[in-house]
Each structure stands twice: as structure tokens, then as C-alpha cells.
Design a protein around this nucleic acid. Structure first.
Lengths: 204, 204
DNA sequence: CAATTAAATGAACGTTCGTTCTTTAACTAT
DNA sequence: ATAGTTAAAGAACGAACGTTCATTTAATTG
């Protein structure tokens, strides 16, 4: 009933986030108790509060870390000088590649927006909009250059993102399709969806 | 503290479902208490159990009613004699049209699968698979007839469905786009996505 | 009209919830 | 070596949870 040998604060805090992630992804934020998280970490409930101010803050931390990581990772993809079609293909491959190994984060960031209180919600929502804007911008570029042929850039962007987000709901590492194949297929499907003709002509 | 004048069992049961729906959609199943539902219905907590055996059964009822309605409604759409492209367009328009006025049901059916206990989960999952199979079948037909050009029918079907499910997350009745326009746009986007060429030739 | 059933109340059940607090032991710095 | 800080345990808090129950009254049935 006291400090445990070898315990380090930073390690415990990291462990809290790490263990809370799959629990919240599986059962939902509201259905996961601080005691469940404490059990997973291997610590008593009360000890959690040495590292985290509240349950709500765990969620905010998980979501903002994920969105920051996602945006930063995309920022490191070099698309300068690419055509819109090449950019969109890069984006599709990036999104699948990055998110497929982070299914829990993606799921939580998508599903638990409603569990956020006002402050956190505003912060996360802003990051999410920024990510959507990436796609919208690429599609708008393609529209202006004539490489794409879409009725409405916003609708097309939401369609592309919806399609991509869905991947996580059915992808299984041991499944019939490899990550590479899925990337190939989605790149082809989504380029077609914005009216890009692989032979180079805009698709009517 | 007794039966209220004019109270009818069937009305109250319907009201329970009706009031629980938006609450669960907004806050999630785990975060909605029986007392919240009772308040919305305008009744004491205990009275709920005159009409519903448990909280879990409310969720099962909501989800299976929605899936049954969805499948039945699609069953009434006559696609006999249509080409695969016409069928897919019919499906896209049907899905958007049906679901756009039932945003809460759709959201719950998609999000709260994890809140279902084993029995209910199996039942609902079966219905969901049946709906997915509708799209897969249309795409497979188009693939075989050469009207579509997709790499993989399953992936294409999941892409189409993901894209469609996303509509509910951003559609606003008072928004820039009418339901009709959204249908038009998605029909065009998703037909292109399966490699259908509007001029009649398969898209390479 | 009497007996039964249906639909509500409101209190209570035992759990579990997020969080706080006191205590104790291990580390760290002087 | 000693003092201060850090990280844990474990008990306890009031509140809220899903559910049950005795009770009361309205509606229905015979």
C-alpha cells in the first residue's frame, strides 16, 4: 500500500493512454470505467489521478494525439510538383497505410466526438476539419486544372473520406487482401470516382 | 402514484422507442440512462419495465426494426430488368433517400453494434451482411456483364457503402445542397467509382 | 356492478461510477 | 543521512446506475 519498486511516473502515464485506447475503442468511452483502465495498467484506481486529471482528459489526450500525429505525418508526405491525380493517389495510400495500423485511434476519433465536452470538442473538431480540407483542396485543384471531373468538390471529398474511413471497419490483417492490394484498389476506385481518366483525359 | 388517465400501453411502448432513439444517437447507448429515457417519455423509471424487459432490449428493438425496415423498403424497389448500372443508381438513390430522414437509426445501427450482447449481435449482424450483399451482387453482375470495371467486387462494395454511410455525418436539411442534388452527385460519383462509363463503354 | 388486468408511482435494492483523501514506501536532492 | 518529492495502495465519498417491488388507480372484462 505504497509506492511500488521501479515505478516511474512517465511510464505509468504512457501506459494509461496505451491501455485505455483499445478499451475505449472496443466498449466506448462511456462504457469504460476508470477501474477497468486501472486494472489494465496494473494499478489501483486512485493511482490514475497521479498522472491524469480526469477520465475526460484521457479521451481528449488520445484524440488530439491521434489527430496531431495524422496531420503531422501527412505534412511529411512530399506532394510538391505532383498533379492533382498523383496527390490524391498519395493521399489515399497515405491514409490507408497510416490508419490501418491505428484502427483503434481512428475508430475513437470518429466515434467519440460526442463524448467530448465543449472545450475538447472544439479543439478536436478543428483538427478534423483541417484533415477534410486536405482532400477538398486536392479535388478543387483537379477540378480547376481539368484533370478531375466532379459535380461538387465538397461532396466528392466527403465521399472519398467516407469510403476511406470505412476500410478500418472491415480490414483484417489476416484477411484475403494485403495492405498493398487494398491501397491499389482504393487508389483506382477513388481516382475514378472523381472523374479522373487513367488514360489522361477527363472522364465525362 | 398510480395509473394515469388516458395512458395506453402500446402508446407508451412506442414512445419509449421514439424517445430513446435520438438520445442514444446523441450520447451513445452506455451514456443514456433509463431515467433519461423515462424523463423523455414523461414517466417514472419503473414504468418503463411494464413495456420493455431491459435497457438492452430497447437497443435490440431499435436496431432490428431499422434493419428490417431498410431491407423491406429495398425489397419494394423494383429493379427487375435493369442493367447493373441502373440498379446501382437505384440503390444509391434509395439508400440516401431512405437514410437521410433516419439519421439517428443509421447512426445507431452503425455505431452501437459493440453495445449488443451476443444474441442480439448475431441477429443484427446477419441483417447488416444481407444489406452489404445487395451491393456486392449488383457490382458482381456489372463485372460479369462488362458494364463495370472493378478490381475487386468486395472492396468496391465496401467503398460504395462507406461513402454512402458518410452522407449522414454531414448532411444538414438546411444546408447548401438539396437531397435531390446529393443523390445526383453520389449516383455519378459512385457509378464512376466502379468503372462505369456514362457513354456506355467500360472504363479502363 | 364486481373482478381482473393494465399502467402508473415512488421508494428501495445492491452495484458501480468518477473522484478524493490519507497513508506508506521508494526514489531524489541536498 | 536527512528532507522532500513522487507514485503507489486502499478506503471512502456521494451520486447515479439498472432493476424490482408494493401500492394505487384507470380501464377492461364477465
Amino acid at each position: 500500500m505504497a509506492r511500488i519498486k521501479g515505478s516511474v511516473g512517465s511510464k505509468t502515464k504512457a501506459s494509461i493512454q496505451e491501455k485505455a485506447l483499445p478499451l475505449i475503442a472496443q466498449f466506448g468511452y462511456a462504457a469504460v470505467s476508470m477501474r477497468m483502465i486501472a486494472d489494465a495498467v496494473g494499478v489501483n484506481v486512485g493511482a490514475l489521478y497521479n498522472h491524469v486529471p480526469s477520465k475526460q482528459q484521457i479521451l481528449v489526450l488520445l484524440m488530439s494525439d491521434h489527430m496531431d500525429g495524422l496531420l503531422a505525418a501527412w505534412g511529411q508526405v512530399d506532394v510538391a510538383g505532383m498533379t492533382p491525380a498523383q496527390k490524391l493517389e498519395s493521399f489515399v495510400r497515405f491514409h490507408i497505410s497510416y490508419n490501418i495500423t491505428r484502427a483503434d485511434d481512428v475508430f475513437i476519433s470518429f466515434m467519440e466526438l460526442r463524448s467530448l465536452e465543449a472545450d475538447g470538442h472544439k479543439r478536436i473538431e478543428k483538427k478534423r476539419k483541417a484533415y477534410e480540407e486536405v482532400v477538398r483542396k486536392i479535388i478543387r485543384e483537379g477540378q480547376e486544372s481539368g484533370q478531375f471531373n466532379v459535380e461538387d468538390a465538397h461532396v466528392a471529398a466527403m465521399s472519398v473520406l467516407g469510403s476511406l474511413i470505412g476500410v478500418n471497419t472491415w480490414y483484417r490483417a489476416k484477411g484475403r487482401l494485403s495492405k498493398a492490394k487494398i491501397e491499389d484498389y482504393y487508389a483506382a476506385i477513388l481516382l475514378r470516382s472523381v472523374g479522373y481518366d487513367i488514360e489522361g483525359k477527363a472522364h465525362v
